[in-house]
Design a protein around this nucleic acid. Structure first.
Lengths: 218, 218, 218, 218
DNA sequence: AATGAATGAGATTTCATTCAT
DNA sequence: AATGAATGAAATCTCATTCAT
């Protein structure tokens, strides 16, 4: 008996989760197509093929949806970046390259949603803003770590990991922020390679340049 | 007779220009204080000390004001960056440093308005969007030029001026975009120097490093 | 066969009655806790521990529930007031006192629901409004009767039983209507005694004052 | 010049006041006709013959309108009751009678709005609720005062002025609350006289009954 | 040239009611 | 008999824009 009830609860939760995803997907699609300012509840309902009222069963307010979209992206970072790092060897610079590429790929997947972080936080609750900041710090940790490791291993100069990782994140975001500009001359792959090469030139230990020649060429 | 009419026209245009400035200033102040989402026509009128109706005598619509604010910032670039360059000598790297600093200073002056460029342009007319893009290209020209000169002079490596200048612009904008993050650890001066040092490391011709030691140290 | 069917019908009706009670209790609890404006169907379902859908099996609409809550209070009067009277002797004034106290006790039991009677009846059906009025007349009958008896017995002055009973009902309701005011200075018992004393002073036959001295003192 | 500006400001304020009155009148009319639950912003706008948006120039929210309607009634008490008292002589009982009649007349003028005070205060701000309570205390002061004077002068028994005045207020409100009931048998004048007579019987000093025979007869 | 009252469309949010399971 | 997801109308409130003065 208990099992049956448990199963019911589980099934319900699964459906609820599915709905949430459906709504977040619709929100992302809508931003993609109409721009992120065009996400009205009516439009979202229409895009998701549900009624306005239903959205409020899954999200308490419009801001909550905005927050969820952002968190969704940040969650993707939290999963994808470590996974990308895990695929390469122990070399800290290669790990950094993998992390940067992973970061860029997530941005590319959520090009319009990714920009939301830069929206003025007035609409977000203080709590939501804090959560985002925490997640941002958390998701950039792999970058900072790889940089710090690289410095310790003598592969990189004595740079400020905080600043350098922030810059790399910014370069990743730039693919979304200035997409109209970059896409005219660069493919995604070229963008990633060239930007990383340029950044690496800025931080690599000059004595190790030969070792990272491939990465430095872009 | 004609002269009198001409004088009238000139006077009128002068007043009109003054009014525009007054309104754009008010808009900037408002964004600074309340965030750029809080700029309603009513709030703008109150801030500028005029009536709502009057605003429509000088701007056809709210979007036109948005456009004007952005153009205003871009105009500041067009004036200030060349001026900054003119103050230093002929060395292309020093010119680049001056240009970057000039760019950052403009951003710092219009911290909230500067972010508007990244706003999705759906609300802007196609014409307006094009104008902004043209101006952006124009205002970044000094950076591109300094980089190209630096390469030609052998001070810089053979990098892509388009990409590098775009990155420098991005770093300047980052002072506005991620201000909450950077201001915790860096003053404006430190930000400018450290970012430029890092960027310069990425593009300087290794053989010229000694010459630019001061700039490279940040 | 018929008997079996009858038994079924009886069982069903019993269950239905139980459910109704459960829902009305939940409604009362909800009003008590959140105020009577906060009774939404969803909240009611949650409070009663049933589904929204189920409520519609027992009540055709929200207004029907409102009506039922009111009727429930009035039913309590219909039961409790005669019972209170039955506990005292034959003296009409003592019967009146008992009736008033009984009336007040019902109000105190349903403090929030009692106020609903004063809600504007636009939401109630004409039929429902009529039913409430009829029940109100019916439940105040014991008061009227006691007053009439008191007059006939010479214990009370020649007052208008209609008006006096209406006033006593009002004083009972006032315990709910102005509870925030009275509870600051009076306990329920004090309220009942003092109000009745005051009212009795207004209607007692002066020549019988000594006889009712205890009640007149409050 | 200053005078002209002052005149402008004064004229504007006068118009604004007129608008407020117009809106409050419309709200009162609407309650009268449709019941106080039917006052939606749309309906109010339609009734007042203005647009929805305009209402928000004069009142910050719907609750503010509700509050203003209530305050309007209470203000009427504050004016009318002392005026009514001023018309009669020095006798405290006659003053009390005048006050009660004044109170009832205000209620009769705002029959539907008067009931709003009994609405659950959840919708009112804490500040608004406090203001109402303060005004209620203030407007009932003349009644309390007359009663206290009557006791001191030996015209009334030693009753509790707080309780008795609350009851008189309640009787006045009852004309609105139970209008459907009383209007079947009593005119407004009869209602006022009979209720006051009854109440006076409850509080008059028995030795002074002859003196107030007229008032005691209703 | 200037005002600001007035408009009304549109945004977010709630909730009584229905219906497939 | 019971569920609760889903609906959609209606409510409150905002704000770009217009227009009489």
């Amino acid at each position: 008996m208990t099992n049956a009830v448990d199963a019911d609860v589980a099934a319900r939760e699964a459906r609820a989760h599915q709905r949430s995803e459906q709504l977040l997907d619709a929100a992302a699609r809508l931003m993609e197509r109409e721009g992120s300012h065009a996400v009205s509840m009516q439009a979202l309902a229409a895009e998701a093929g549900v009624s306005v009222g239903l959205i409020y069963r899954y999200f308490g307010s419009k801001d909550e949806i905005l927050l969820a979209v952002i968190v969704h992206v940040l969650d993707d970072f939290a999963t994808a970046v470590p996974a990308a790092i895990a695929e390469v060897g122990d070399d800290p610079v290669e790990r950094l390259a993998a992390a940067f590429r992973g970061y860029c790929e997530v941005i590319d997947r959520h090009r319009h949603a990714a920009v939301l972080t830069y929206r003025e936080g007035k609409s977000l609750s203080e709590e939501g803003r804090q959560r985002i900041k925490d997640l941002e710090v958390e998701t950039t940790e792999p970058l900072r770590r790889a940089i710090a490791d690289g410095i310790e291993a003598g592969a990189l100069r004595e740079v400020e990991p905080e600043l350098v990782s922030a810059n790399l994140v910014l370069l990743a975001h730039a693919w979304a922020l200035k997409h109209w500009y970059f896409e005219r001359t660069l493919s995604f792959d070229e963008y990633v390679r060239q930007q990383f090469a340029l950044a690496l030139h800025g931080i690599v230990n000059p004595k190790q340049k030969r070792r990272y020649a491939a990465l430095l060429e872009g």
